[in-house]
């Protein structure tokens, strides 16, 4: 069987990779995908904790999975906004370099 702390550890490592990617990336697409990695890490932790405390037959717990459904919807909205910002950036500046966009 899978130990619980391995699930949470995988989630923590994925979160660390995502945050470091946000710090390192300068290209817009890499940045948005790195943020999506951190969302995915939190989803993994939510599902893992929900599986760890599933409740009993009388009262099952669904809180973690409900959280994940909401997070997926919010992250989809974030990606859509990122895409439209990417389009306007590309049209007005002819490039998607983040550091130049701030200057």
């Amino acid at each position: 069987m899978i130990p619980e702390h391995h699930v949470i550890g995988l989630s923590a490592i994925l979160f660390a990779i995502g945050v470091l990617g946000v710090l390192v990336r300068r290209n817009f697409i890499g940045l948005v995908l790195s943020i999506a990695l951190t969302f995915n890490a939190s989803n993994l932790a939510f599902v893992g904790f929900n599986r760890f405390w599933p409740g009993d037959e009388a009262k099952l717990h669904w809180d973690g999975q409900v959280f994940v459904a909401v997070v997926i919807a919010v992250a989809a909205a974030q990606v859509v906004m990122g895409l439209s910002v990417l389009f306007s950036m590309f049209r007005n500046r002819n490039g998607v370099d983040i550091d130049e966009a701030g200057a």
Binding site: M1, I2, P3, E4, H5, R51, P54, E57
Partner: peptide, 16 residues
């Protein structure tokens, strides 16, 4: 968390 909890996942209750 690893120091506190070192157990496998519990069995699945019916309906989960």
């Amino acid at each position: 968390f690893t120091a506190d909890t070192r157990s496998s996942l519990p069995p699945v209750p019916p309906g989960y």
